[in-house]
């Protein structure tokens, strides 16, 4: 059975946590103490130099001064490094804390507590509008470019102009005509009913025309064009 190659596991460097913060803070404190001790030693050496006769002091004091100087340089270097690391830790911890706090906050409840109406009342829209220079805004709009982007031909092509013209021209005439036609149709039916009554006809008239399509083609095609 083939064994699938296992992808190498990459462990991301963990962000500095609270423990790092404490440890680094302590280190900064130790370094500060070391620096202080070095300063004290340095001051002591200088006082000794001034007070004691040079013949006695030169050799041992220079040895001590060199040692103190070395110690101080080392402490300064470590202090800088530790301060940077501590700053990183502080940042990370603060970020974590802020995230936690934000997670805990019920935003909608918070928003609900904001008196929107009062806030809106305080805003003077008119004053804001007065400060807007409409002419300048309009002047910056390139109307020609906008018009150039409108596809007038496409709009016209998408409209059924023929139908619009036809509807608007036949509409009124058609309505009037239909009014007269309805009256005539009513008279047709009335007269037919009257005659049927007089002639004692029992069955109603058969006015249906089987196969007639009202919407069908009307124009007879001459034989030569068929």
């Amino acid at each position: 059975m083939p064994i699938a190659p296992v992808p190498p596991v990459v462990v991301p460097p963990a962000a500095p946590g609270v423990f790092d913060l404490v440890a680094r803070g302590a280190r900064v404190g130790v370094d500060a103490a070391g620096l202080l001790a070095a300063e004290v030693a340095d001051a002591t050496v200088r006082i000794a130099r001034a007070v004691l006769p040079p013949a006695v002091t030169t050799g041992p004091l220079e040895f001590v001064g060199d040692a103190v100087e070395r110690r101080r340089t080392e402490a300064r270097r470590r202090e800088a490094a530790n301060a940077d690391a501590t700053a990183d830790a502080v940042q990370a911890v603060v970020r974590r804390v802020v995230e936690l706090v934000i997670d805990q906050i019920d935003m909608s409840a918070l928003v609900r507590r904001i008196p929107i109406d009062e806030v809106v009342d305080q805003i003077d829209i008119d004053a804001i509008a007065e400060r807007i220079d409409v002419d300048a805004v309009v002047a910056r709009v390139d109307i020609d470019a906008i018009v150039a982007r409108i596809d007038v031909a496409g709009i016209v092509a998408s409209m059924d102009l023929g139908a619009i013209v036809r509807d608007s021209t036949t509409g009124l005439a058609g309505e009037t005509l239909d009014g007269v036609r309805v009256q005539l149709m009513g008279l047709d039916l009335l007269l037919a009913r009257l005659v049927d009554r007089i002639t004692f006809r029992r069955t109603p008239r058969d006015t249906a025309v089987p196969g007639y399509d009202v919407a069908g083609p009307e124009i007879r095609t001459p034989r030569g064009l068929r």
Binding site: R181, V182, L184, M185, L187, D188, L191, A192, V209, D213
Partner: peptide, 14 residues
């Protein structure tokens, strides 16, 4: 009613 009578045989008045 007029719509329904379209395509039917017309009467004498019309």
């Amino acid at each position: 009613r007029a719509q329904a009578l379209q395509g039917h045989r017309a009467g004498i008045v019309s």
